[in-house]
């Protein structure tokens, strides 16, 4: 039986982190499931599903030395694994506009009420320091259909929002 734990590492980005962390996990009989690493600003962030028979404390003790070497903060949560429980995205949403506070809150609140289940979200602040442009990309499941999502954000006049069905070809 698998013992899944979610390992989170955050800190200043530098080359070699993934290799060092995955090596120490492998040497200690931990197995990886799904993982997502992203550089956010100048920061390294990763969340990895780790199948490891020991306790969360044991997993932390394995990771702490390598995290310390790279100056990373580490965190472990015992989780339900649920591999092969993917939800299929059927809508893609992109949004951009002059940056202001509250874009994500106002857009996602409306979208949630119109049946959106967000499966992946990325945001970025592009443009320049003087004229920052906020960009958000979402993929998700539209339980009430795409048109309901379009109507829900229709009043957000200062934002350009594109909501399109996501087709998947299975062959």
């Amino acid at each position: 039986m698998a013992h899944w734990q979610m390992l989170t590492l955050v800190g200043k980005d530098q080359p070699g982190i993934v290799a060092a962390v995955s090596a120490v996990l492998y040497k200690n009989n931990a197995n990886l499931g799904e993982a997502a690493m992203q550089r956010l600003g100048a920061n390294f962030t990763i969340m990895m599903m780790v199948d490891y028979a020991g306790s969360a404390e044991d997993l932390l003790s394995i990771v702490t030395p390598v995290a310390a070497r790279f100056g990373l903060k580490e965190h472990v949560d015992v989780i339900e694994g649920r591999l092969h429980a993917h939800l299929q995205a059927d809508v893609s949403i992109s949004l951009y506009g002059a940056d202001r506070a509250g874009i994500v809150a106002s857009a996602t609140e409306r979208l949630a009420q119109a049946g959106l289940h967000i499966l992946a979200l990325h945001t970025d602040v592009a443009g320049t320091e003087e004229k920052p442009v906020f960009v958000m990309e979402i993929s998700g499941h539209a339980a009430q259909g795409v048109e309901a999502l379009r109507e829900a954000v229709d009043d957000l006049d200062d934002l350009e929002i594109h909501i399109d069905p996501l087709q998947t070809m299975i062959g």
Partner: peptide, 11 residues
């Protein structure tokens, strides 16, 4: 986006 009968559970 593509999936495949021969590669279950991956898009």
């Amino acid at each position: 986006r593509e999936g495949c009968l021969s590669v279950p559970d991956f898009i």
